[in-house]
Each structure stands twice: as C-alpha cells, then as structure tokens.
C-alpha cells in the first residue's frame, strides 16, 4: 500500500509491494521492511507468512537497519537484459552488491553513487530510497539502492 501525494500529477508507487515503510512522501524517512521468524530468528525481505528456514508461521514485521556493509559485489558493465529502467543511453556501469545488514540478512541491491573502481568488500553502506522512473500513468516508481556511507 502506498500513500498518494496531494496535488501531484502522479503519485509515488513502490517498485515492489510490502518492501517500504510508508508514507512515501519523504523518501529520506523511508526504510526497508522485513519479516522475522519468532521461532528461529531468520529474517526475510518484505512480507512473508511462513519461515523458509524452519517452517514456522509465527512471524512478525520488522524494519531493517539502514546501515550495511558490502559482503561481495560485481560490476554490471553491459545493459542488463529485459526491461531495465536505469539509464540506458548512455548506459552507466554500476556495482551490484550483496549487502549485509546487522539484522542478519544479505540483500542483493544496486550500489550507486560509487565508482566501481572504489568498491571494496566490507565497505560501509547506507540505504537510499529514490524516485527511479515514471510508469505509464505518470507515477514515480520508488526503488532502493545502497550508497557509500
């Protein structure tokens, strides 16, 4: 669920359901949401109803820490296949990272505002939530990435 902005042409919509805290008005105040298993403590991105580790259905919603570190990464040097919404003309190579959060999860995410030459395993990162592209209805589609902290 997303909150519409008053008096805007379009509204802000999330690129993926149940991943962002709401409202989306002030993107600096938006965090990633997850689900934690009350039995084994494993955490998952977004909303899940059962634990893929232990099978428990006793789950609670959590908000992830914004801070993380770069567990590993690769550099995307060519336009990704399919309907990529980032800059294509010209394409800007970017770091794709596996970002470890203190919550006990590693998330695959773009690591932006970071020259691929400067990326290092274990470098500190922080979440950035931003307007990524406009959909057909003129809505701003909100995505996430990590940037050097």
């Amino acid at each position: 669920m997303t909150t519409s902005q008053p008096a805007a042409k379009g509204k802000r919509v999330a690129i993926r359901q149940d991943l962002f805290t709401t409202p989306l008005d002030d993107l600096n105040a938006v965090h990633l949401k997850g689900t934690k298993c009350n039995d084994c403590g494993e955490v998952f991105m977004g909303h899940v109803i059962s634990c893929a580790h232990c099978g428990s259905e006793s789950m609670k919603g959590i908000v992830f820490n914004d801070q993380g570190t770069l567990y590993t990464y690769s550099v995307i040097q060519y336009v990704p296949p399919g309907d990529y919404k980032g800059p294509k003309d010209p394409f800007i190579p970017f770091v794709e990272g596996l970002v470890e959060l203190p919550d006990g999860i590693r998330i695959v995410a773009p690591v932006l505002d970071c020259d691929p030459k400067n990326a290092r395993i274990n470098m500190p990162l922080k979440l950035k939530v931003y307007d990524f592209f406009k959909d057909e209805e003129g809505n701003d589609v909100v995505a996430f990435c990590y940037v050097p902290a």
Partner: peptide, 16 residues
C-alpha cells in the same frame, strides 16, 4: 522489480 532495477544479469551472481 529485479529486472527493472538491473539485477537480472545471470553471470553477476556467479561473479559475486
């Protein structure tokens, strides 16, 4: 959403 965000390059997972 993974495709839109550019996370759909298969070999990049092996590279990581």
């Amino acid at each position: 959403w993974q495709v839109q965000m550019g996370l759909s390059t298969n070999p990049s997972y092996w590279a990581m």
